[in-house]
Write a protein that binds this DNA or RNA. Structure first.
Length: 488
RNA sequence: GGUCACAUAGCCAAGUGGUUAGGCACCGGUCUGCAAAACCGGCUACAGCGGUUCGAAUCCGCUUGUGACCUCCA
């Protein structure tokens, strides 16, 4: 089996994953800003790094996965500035900022649970780490890489760049940045347009504010991730993840301020997931094509032809590689829905397969191919294509065209379960497998009666049972060994 | 305007120099009282133009198109 490799944005190459302190592995991922409902854009990084979390654990690492909640103010530039996003929403709705934060945090958690995204090991909130952030600002000031201007503290990028390469992660050249930065209001406090705030003095109407040595205000926009990753993962840690949209300036700034605060390059592997498009267009609130997850699951949105099960969404996202853009459309989602159902179907017949004295399929080679795909920078689409190869094998066994022993069925079942449920984090939520058995039993009874009717050539009765079950949403499917059914 | 990505069959999506990835749709077939479902099989594409090479979707150049970032949004 090959080594686990990760594409490192910093080197622009796939690198073998070697943790700093085996068997431990530390991951930090930029989490949501909780000022609105979770949408598709939140689902992708959550699922991508959930996959990473699950796979590292599968490989035997003891993983600490930290994913923050951003609940401290960040300015909006497009509107009548002055308030941060959370404060603004709070005023709008006449409630406490922390009430907004709580509501949308709960909502995010609920949606992530629906997508079968595991909770991280630690989920720190920016508002709960103000002292750590203030301390980091002070350290950077003492080191001489920041300056105070009108109660705010800014990071001195130019000075940093004299001894450290600024822009390495995102491929920016400082001189170019200077040439292309636009003139904006509020820039006059800064020595250079590309300097960024470590601490920001609050405007009078700004509700979320904390006391600091420099002013009453709030921490800078990139600082929380540096402060919290350091606190929970140390000065140096293994993996930092996030969306590609965070590459610049957010992660670039994190690198700079952490380097000065700790004297070390804090992150070994930078991982970035790509964005989601809808019908070929970027998803965005301003474009009116942003779909929140609740609507996705209920189908209640003009762009949606139907409701999509969370597992369909998860499977769909995993069918593309995390570093590629992924285009949502009804056609594509419906394709995934059917493919996923076929996968689950094959899994369900596994136990019922006819046993043979020998096995004619190559289980070990297949397992290696699955692992190799995952080891190749989490190439889930290739891994899933191997799963479908096994689906075909299972069906061929079922048709008597291939053979498998009793032992190998058990072995295969364990492996499939590990890949599909443990690593990919999929969940079989067909109704027959959950909750009470009363409904399945009743349906089974009806189907038995129908079978007898068919035997007696009473097709009026048999069709009536099938049709009326169909009317209440239960699809009857005749097979060789009696009828099957499913909700739908 | 600057920087960087990407362009693969009806749709989605892997693939980084030489054996048809995969899913959905579609078309055949098996099964079946009928239908549906299920299963098996088929479907050989790489934006355009030029170049490198014995050989290119894959490397290089140009053109066209799409997207991301360049903002005290995260």
């Amino acid at each position: 089996m090959s080594d686990f490799t990760i594409y490192n944005t910093l080197s622009r190459e796939k690198e073998k994953f070697v943790p700093l302190h085996p068997p431990f592995a530390g991951i930090y991922v930029c989490g949501p800003t909780v000022y609105g409902d979770a949408h598709l854009g939140h689902a992708r990084p959550a699922i991508t790094f959930d996959l990473l979390f699950r796979y590292l654990r599968h490989l035997g690492y003891k993983v600490r996965y930290v994913r923050n909640i951003t609940d401290v103010g960040h300015l909006e530039n497009d509107a009548d500035a002055g308030n941060d996003k959370i404060a603004k929403k709070a005023l709008l709705e006449q409630i406490e900022p922390m009430e907004v934060v709580q509501r949308y945090t709960d909502n995010y958690h609920r949606n992530m649970d629906q997508l079968n995204v595991l909770m991280p090991s630690i989920e720190p909130r920016a508002s709960g780490h103000i002292p750590e952030q203030i301390e980091m600002v002070a350290t950077i000031l003492e080191a001489g890489y920041a300056y105070i201007s009108n109660g705010s503290v800014y990071f001195d990028v130019e000075k940093y760049h004299q001894s450290n390469p600024y822009g390495q992660l995102s491929g920016r050249v400082l001189e170019d940045l200077l040439a292309t930065t636009r003139e904006l209001e509020g820039q006059q406090e800064k020595r250079n347009p590309f300097d960024f705030a470590l601490w920001k003095q609050a405007e009078p109407e700004h509700i979320m504010r904390w006391k600091s040595p420099w002013s009453e205000g709030f921490p800078g926009w990139h600082l929380e991730c540096s402060a919290m990753s350091r606190k929970y993962l140390g000065d140096e840690f293994d993996i930092h993840g996030g969306g590609m949209d965070l590459l610049f300036p957010h992660h670039e700034c994190e690198i700079a301020q952490s380097k000065i605060a700790t004297g070390k390059d804090s992150v070994r592997y930078w991982m970035h997931n790509n964005l989601i498009t809808i019908n070929g267009q970027k998803m965005g609130k301003s474009l009116g094509n942003s779909i929140i997850l609740d609507d996705m699951f209920s189908g209640n949105h003009p762009l949606l032809e139907q409701a999509y099960d969370p597992m369909t969404i998860r499977f769909f996202i995993l069918q593309a590689h995390y570093r590629s853009t992924l285009d949502f459309s009804n056609e594509a989602l419906q394709a995934s829905e059917k493919g996923f159902a076929r996968l689950m179907k094959a899994l369900s017949i596994l136990e019922k397969l006819p046993r043979s004295p020998q096995t004619t399929i190559d289980i070990d080679g297949w397992e290696t191919r699955c692992h190799d795909a995952l080891n190749d920078d989490l190439n889930t689409p290739v891994m899933i294509s191997h799963l479908f190869d096994m689906v075909r094998q299972i069906n061929l066994i079922n048709d008597g065209k291939e053979q498998v022993t009793d032992t190998d069925i058990a072995r295969l079942g364990l492996k499939l379960s590990a890949f599909i449920f443990d690593i990919l984090g999929l969940r079989d939520n067909s109704i027959a497998d959950s909750g009470s058995t009363v409904l399945p039993d009743v349906i089974r009874l009806l189907l038995d009666i129908r079978q007898e009717a068919k035997k007696n050539k009473d097709f009026t009765l048999s069709d009536r049972i099938r049709n009326e079950l169909g009317n209440i949403g239960i699809k009857v499917k005749d097979g060789k060994d009696g009828a099957e059914w499913e909700m739908g």
